[in-house]
Write a protein that binds this DNA or RNA. Sequence first.
DNA 1: TTTTGTTGATTGAACGTTCAATAAAAACAT
DNA 2: ATGTTTTTATTGAACGTTCAATCAACAAAA
Lengths: 199, 199
Amino acid sequence: MPKVGMEPIRRRQLISATMQAIDDVGLADATVARIARQAGVSAGIISHYFGGKDGLLEATMRQILYDLGAAVATRRGRLPEDTPAAHLRAIIDGNFDRSQVSQSVMKTWLAFWASSMHKHDLQRLQRVNDRRLYSNLCSQFRRCLPRAEARRAARGLAAMIDGLWLRGALAPEGLDVDRARRLAYDYLEEQLARADCLA
Amino acid sequence: MPKVGMEPIRRRQLISATMQAIDDVGLADATVARIARQAGVSAGIISHYFGGKDGLLEATMRQILYDLGAAVATRRGRLPEDTPAAHLRAIIDGNFDRSQVSQSVMKTWLAFWASSMHKHDLQRLQRVNDRRLYSNLCSQFRRCLPRAEARRAARGLAAMIDGLWLRGALAPEGLDVDRARRLAYDYLEEQLARADCLA
DNA sequence: TTTTGTTGATTGAACGTTCAATAAAAACAT
DNA sequence: ATGTTTTTATTGAACGTTCAATCAACAAAA
């Protein structure tokens, strides 16, 4: 079957299979054999394309982070109005699109959160994402709130988003996206109501 | 060394050693050998007292849940006034005491969250805790809000607490307990301000 | 002497990685 | 077009390592 230019195809297959495997049995039992079987390829191919299992896991986390960033950027790119409220709602929406709020992506996120505590490569990635969310929120809040207040609001909204998301991931009934978004919107409005910039 | 009545002592030692090991190297690398060494005993003793590694992990999660419940119950037991606001603040405080907001407990929590996605025993425990927090919040909010509003507020506050906690666990600088509590208090007050029960 | 608590070498299963072997496509030659 | 060589992609068995669990042997208290 070998054709030229398989690399990007295989990489996508394997990253997708990794998320599926984590969804099925968890990171601890997501063995290279299982992931390879899920992708319909041999186990050896993982080391060939990713240098090893760790490389595949890092690439998978990178993909998720990229998708999240793209989801936010897309919505911020086509805003009807350039108000802080509009930007902040777009950020919220992007975080709750998350390329899809699928069970497999949520489980993979959670697994990587736990794992990033002790793997420095993952920790770095996770940290970049955290700071991006916080500073995006902060710079928008700053357009209508003093610095200290903007920081407070950004921290609160970031916590609200992550908390809703975490509880959605853990809940057997899954995440109710509309309800979660409404709660985040409500919090946002209460923060903006402190200033007079309810756009 | 063998004396009678070692069981409770060994159990406490091993549960504590488990948290320490997870703090040191993560759940994935917290082997029975490492945990036993941390506790200063032989590896075999784990199977003897806990039936195996899984038993020890479940017991460790049970301990953390128990400590959390106790922290909340204690504060609710000595309230100056029997108002919803006072109860809700006690619940917040209890969640941010968490017996201690130590790095080892937070890392262990996060590891168990991820793990509970695929181990039914842990999932059951985690779910009990989740529902306890939610229904505690809900029943207090119900004292001054209509049912639907109370549920909404409970969901929001629960998400805020867990979100603050999660971000604190992930942040390299650790959790700023006072700041987190203040954000949760603020949210609480905004919810109560919707009714007229700002006690 | 019996009971209780503990050890640590051993066992077997499972894992990630490696690499010689292989197969198909691509490139080249005729 | 057709045959040949080279390149690229892939396999999967073998290897070495690591782990949890076991259990016969042992030690100290009762």
